[in-house]
């Protein structure tokens, strides 16, 4: 275990913990909004940022963050307009990002080898200044995705209802894609830009198989994310393969294991659950002098297995020595 004493491994492990927590956290909202491929597209956009940084000899991470966030805002505005051409516009943006990134990297004299460090992750390339950016941005995304969970959950679950709650739905939707863009970019050293989407989506699906409820699902996904990211980094060190590939394979393995657990849980549920109506709380009338009965002058209304008498706009039914409101 003396690998832990290596400085580059310490940085890689810290980055892995943060990415493992953050990617599934924001991924929970992305999945809920059925935007699972958004992370993938944003990864492509970030590649343009990396290419631009290589071309201008600046640090890739900050440039990629700015480019990717700008792309995310553009995508959200397009989605909000609900344009029929949205799919085409997204394809242009995503593949334009990938192609221009590769072009700029090539023009900078950097081959596919350099770029692949960003596409699939690379243990040795996490610099100290990268780690500071990853840590700061990671904590921001974590605070937002856990602290604002009730609001973002409501917006993702039912947009119209969230509006009637007075929530600023547009702002939250924008926040979710911006946080996703930050997450995608800061994950580029750990899982890489082409594979990060898998870490946003697969632990969420795994967690949904294992836990009931939105909040347990959120925390479960974060836990699974940390475990596979850390294991992937170690595996990558010993097997000498890009960490991203190892992390994603582990995430898929965890998902495969969670699958039978769900079907086992479902099998234990009673087969057909009959819609048994629980009785609503019992409510006696205040005072009642009149005795209801056939021909008493009050209108009779059928009510399930008995009849009620309509009495001053209320429905009354005899029960023991009094009448109940029905």
């Amino acid at each position: 275990m003396e690998v832990i004493t290596l400085a580059f491994m310490q940085r890689a492990l810290i980055a892995a913990i943060l990415t493992g927590l953050v990617a599934p956290a924001i991924g929970t909202y992305v999945v809920q909004r059925r935007l699972s491929l958004l992370g993938d597209g944003l990864g492509h956009v970030a590649i343009a940022g990396v290419g631009l940084a290589l071309l201008t000899h600046t640090s890739p991470l900050p440039v990629a963050v700015v480019v990717c966030v700008a792309g995310a805002v553009g995508i959200e505005l397009l989605r909000e307009r609900g344009r029929a051409t949205g799919d085409v516009a997204l394809a242009v943006l995503f593949y334009g990002g990938l192609a221009s990134g590769v072009l700029m990297a090539g023009a900078a004299g950097q081959g596919a080898g350099t770029l692949s460090n960003y596409l699939f992750g690379s243990l040795t390339s996490v610099t100290a200044s990268d780690l500071v950016i990853v840590a700061v941005l990671g904590v921001v995304v974590l605070i937002a995705s856990v602290g604002l969970a009730p609001q973002m959950f409501a917006v993702c679950a039912d947009e119209d209802f969230a509006r009637v709650l007075g929530l600023r739905v547009r702002a939250y939707n924008l926040l979710i894609v911006v946080l996703a863009a930050i997450t995608v970019t800061t994950a580029m050293r750990t899982v890489g830009l082409l594979l990060v989407s898998a870490l946003m989506v697969i632990p969420v699906a795994t967690s949904q198989n294992l836990f009931k409820g939105f909040r347990s699902g959120l925390y479960g996904a974060m836990g699974i994310g940390v475990v596979v990211a850390l294991s992937g980094v170690f595996g990558s060190f010993y097997a000498d393969v890009p960490p991203g590939a190892f992390i994603v394979v582990l995430a898929i393995a965890a998902f495969a294991v969670s699958w039978p657990i769900t079907s086992w849980r479902h099998r234990r549920r009673p087969l057909a659950s009959v819609d048994e109506v629980e009785p609503l709380p019992h409510e006696p009338t205040p005072e009642h002098e009149h005795v209801h009965g056939p021909g008493c002058g009050h209108r009779v209304v059928e009510h399930g297995d008995h009849v009620d008498y309509v009495h001053d706009g209320h429905r009354h039914v005899a029960h023991a020595d009094h009448y109940d409101e029905h």
Binding site: V31, A157, A162, G166, K212, G213
Partner: peptide, 21 residues
Amino acid sequence: RASVSLHTTTVRELVTSGTLS
């Protein structure tokens, strides 16, 4: 129509979202 997408969301969580106003 209920447009609730996440299939693990519980009844209590949905009802709780009504408190956000």
